[in-house]
Simulated assay, not measured.
Amino acid sequence: MFKVNNLKKSVEGNTKEVLHGISAEFEAGEMIGVIGPSGSGKSILLQCLALRESWNDGDYTWDGKSVIRGGGKGAGKFRSKCAYLEQNPTLNPEKTALKNVLIGQAGQTSLLRRLTGMVRSDDYMGAMDELEKFGLLDKAHLKAGNLSGGERQRVAICRALVHGAGFIAADEPVIGLDPHSADKVMTTLKSLCTEQGKTVIAALPIELAERYCTRIWGIYDGQLQLDVKGRRLTGEEKRQIDLA
């Protein structure tokens, strides 16, 4: 169980509040689509939930333990189990898909591994297993720079799983992808929730949120205006978040 209580976030030298007291609860296995107009606060919300951005106020509990007020140790432990997927995943284009999965992002792996690239055999097999699950086994030894956008996004998801992520915040993970690639990425994210009990919260176009998500959050002007089960939204619900 995750619980967000009165999350507030300011930018520009903490003079402009962009998230205004957001409160919500969610559980393992949920796939939540975050929708709203441009500038509504979707990206900064995801960064705060994945602890990639600090909070100005509020509390965040995970299985009853605070990861905001519990001090740096609590936040660090939680952050190691979170993954934040950017719109365009940061992969090393000169390294293979497999190497990108194994080395991971800063903070996920030891400095020695990042410098030497040395890995244990069980880590190697675990990475190959994840790549196979998501239809990337034949791409394992290709350089990331030669992969398509959808393939790079799925490599980033594999990387998160190999390094122990149980919670994934994805910022518009299908932006710029063709429909076929977008469907593959969304199916991959959905399978993490239904088959592995992971929690995924993703900023999405409204039609994909309606199609794939078990729950939809509507954000408008930094506030959570809508929190409903995943389904086709009504015209009135869309108007609440200026998407009608």
Rank of each mutant, 00 (worst) to 15 (best):
F2L: 13
V4I: 15
N6K: 13
S10N: 06
T15I: 03
V18A: 07
H20T: 11
G21L: 01
S23R: 15
G33H: 07
P37F: 03
S40R: 15
L45M: 14
L45T: 05
L46P: 14
S54Y: 09
G58V: 07
G58I: 14
T61A: 07
V67E: 08
G70N: 04
F78Q: 00
R79E: 06
C82N: 10
Y84A: 08
T90C: 00
A97D: 04
Q105L: 13
Q108G: 12
V119I: 11
V119C: 01
R120Y: 10
D122K: 08
D122N: 05
Y124D: 15
G126Q: 09
A127R: 00
L136A: 05
H141Q: 12
N146K: 14
R152G: 11
Q153K: 14
G164S: 03
A165P: 02
D171S: 09
E172P: 11
D178F: 08
D178V: 04
M186F: 00
C193V: 02
T194V: 08
T199W: 01
A203P: 10
P205G: 02
R211I: 09
R215V: 13
W217P: 13
L226P: 03
L226K: 14
D227V: 02
V228F: 00
K229D: 09
R231A: 08
R232Y: 00
R232S: 03
E237M: 08
R239W: 02
L243P: 06
A244I: 04
